[in-house]
């Protein structure tokens, strides 16, 4: 399948890309790894007049961390993040990066592209909402920092303005004693998740001190499940507490009936994954090494 014809431009810098995108107008789109955009163009879900290839802009794929926080450049591929020391330091990041699609897609797909696509099935928006990350952009109006939580406003609709590019993301290093898990369920490796869940929590003794929970593929945007968090905060993590949190997550979700399954099926998967995410995060808080990622049917 061929996409409809378009012109191709290669940007040498962020500034050049912003200028090109602004001059070319609303028919132009930025191309990073292309793992969402090229499929979309091939399926003729849409057309572009011009693609501005930002994939070769130097320095945009760096992954840095210090005591205060983590910064990941927009062009860091899923594979690069999966192999990074960060994925070992924060297993929740490794869970996510290693579980996205397959080796081939992880070689090309980028964290910035995953966010810019506005696709509720993409994993990074869910993981980054769980970690309360910020997103950094540059555009004709200058640079902006905005939370990942709420960045996608509706299906495929983001807060990016014309000519504005995501340059990277950052988040504070989780407090000592805090741990997380990212779990997903899908038909096969190359498929988008049927449901995915991110959980980051900290314990005080046996009590949940703080927690964030986000759901992917469970509505038209990433869902920050605040009601589920409220069921856990200050409570001991018993099976009954987890079940209430799972029910609250289902109530916060709005999955659609599609080829990945009917609504009731997806709701039951949300329940299982929320419980599994909390249990895994709790075990990791206790210092256990637990391997989780996306599972296939």
């Amino acid at each position: 399948m061929y996409p409809a014809p378009f012109r191709y431009h290669r940007a040498a810098s962020i500034e050049a890309a912003i200028r090109q995108l602004s001059e070319l107008g609303e028919g132009a789109r930025a191309l990073a790894g292309g793992q969402s955009l090229l499929v979309w163009l091939k399926m003729r879900f849409g057309e572009v007049s011009d693609l501005v290839d930002i994939g070769r802009i130097p320095g945009l794929d760096a992954i840095t961390q210090d005591a205060a926080g983590v910064r990941i450049g927009a062009l860091a591929t899923h594979a690069r993040i999966a192999r990074s020391p960060l994925a070992k330091l924060l297993p929740i990041v490794g869970d996510c990066a290693n579980g996205i699609a397959d080796n081939q897609v992880r070689s090309r797909g980028t964290i910035g592209g995953s966010l810019a696509s506005g696709d509720p099935s993409c994993d990074w928006p869910v993981l980054l909402t769980t970690l309360d990350a910020n997103l950094h952009t540059q555009g004709p109006g200058g640079a902006r920092d905005l939370p990942v939580d709420g960045f996608v406003e509706d299906l495929y609709v983001t807060k990016l303005k014309p000519g504005e590019l995501i340059t990277g993301i950052s988040f504070a290093m989780p407090v000592k004693g805090s741990a997380g898990a990212y779990v997903g369920f899908k038909r096969c490796a190359p498929a988008y998740p049927t449901i995915s869940v991110g959980v980051q929590l900290s314990l005080k003794g046996e009590q949940c001190e703080d927690v964030r929970i986000a759901l992917g593929s469970a509505g038209l945007t990433t869902i920050h499940a605040r009601a589920a968090e409220a069921e856990l905060k200050g409570k001991t993590l018993t099976p009954a507490t987890l079940a209430r949190a799972a029910d609250a997550a289902v109530a916060a979700s709005d999955p659609v009936d599609d080829q990945r399954g009917p609504i009731a099926f997806k709701q039951s998967i949300i329940k299982v994954l929320v419980r599994r995410g909390i249990e895994t995060a709790k075990r990791r808080c206790h210092g256990e090494t637990v391997e989780v990622s996306h599972e296939y049917y």
Binding site: N103, Q104, S107, C188, P190
Partner: peptide, 21 residues
């Protein structure tokens, strides 16, 4: 981008050549 029949290596990394220009 599902089936992998088009897999080749680009600079040593496996990729799906139906989803690369």
């Amino acid at each position: 981008t599902y089936c992998g029949a088009c897999t080749v290596q680009l600079n040593g990394a496996p990729i799906k050549s139906c989803t690369v220009l």
